[in-house]
Amino acid sequence: MRAVFRLSEWLYGVLLRLYPKRFRTAYGQQMRQRFRDACRVAYRQNGGGGVLALWLPTLLDLVKSALEERAQQGEITMFKARLVTLAGPLTMLVGVLWLMACVGDFVFRLGAEGNEAFLGLVAIPFFFSFFPLLFALIGIRQRFHPVVGSLGRVGLALSVAGGAGVLVSVLTNILLSGLVPEAGPHLWANYAAVFCVLSIRVGFILFGVDMQRYHMLPRWNWLPLLLGLTVVLSLPLDWFGVPAFLPAQWATPYLHFAVSGVCWLLFGLTLLGPGRAPQATAAV
């Protein structure tokens, strides 16, 4: 039983890091002690199951109150402001990772490295790009949400939701494969990931249409629309199938990574520049 207490207390101590440092310094020790007391009472009343049952409400309360404390100390606002600044470099990083995947794909298709491990190396930069991409998308939304029209707002929301969704579905897939290996591949998680990637692209198409109207980037206002439209290079292949002998089978995934990677890179570059006040061209 001591092991359960120790593990619970250790985990609670780790989770306390979610609170701002000042709050942790003032109350961290007491909170650990209270949690230990609550664990003892729960165990006395309902055994090991009682300790486990204590965890769910404790976890929900911890996340909620940690967010409240961070908001109280202005840290969330600061974090959002930092994301706006970081959106440019993060988007450029996404572009670099996609270009790496593109080069890997190219080498793989040339047959220079014809093994499964190399295919993994192609997928790794692509998968990891979704971490900086999510934060970049949040930063982009923070920056443009107040100045775009309703179409652009829907687009930005779709892209952020898609970015979060890709990570959740891929991580769920990995977790389920680890926990229930006998269940085989979880196709629904793969479909969810594809759907979320599509959501990012559709979001960028909508955002891109608004960018054409308001011209809020210092240059290359067509980039968000192009970024959204590059989806046509990848999805028709997956959905409708293209015969293997056609060059399109070989070229389109490569082109998809290449064009998207260059677009992310250039878009990140434009985000480094100062924003413009909205200049409506369509509205009269």
């Binding site: 909170m31 209270r34 109150s65 940690a66």
Partner: peptide, 30 residues
């Protein structure tokens, strides 16, 4: 002490209100 406050609130409200640890210390601070 903190745990005493949690228990007292729970008893005085006949279990209708339970203050969890995070909320307790956030409220104490404020």
């Amino acid at each position: 002490h903190g745990y005493g406050i949690m228990r007292a609130v729970e008893e005085e409200t006949q279990g209708q209100m339970q203050i969890r640890i995070g909320s307790l210390y956030g409220s104490i601070g404020r």
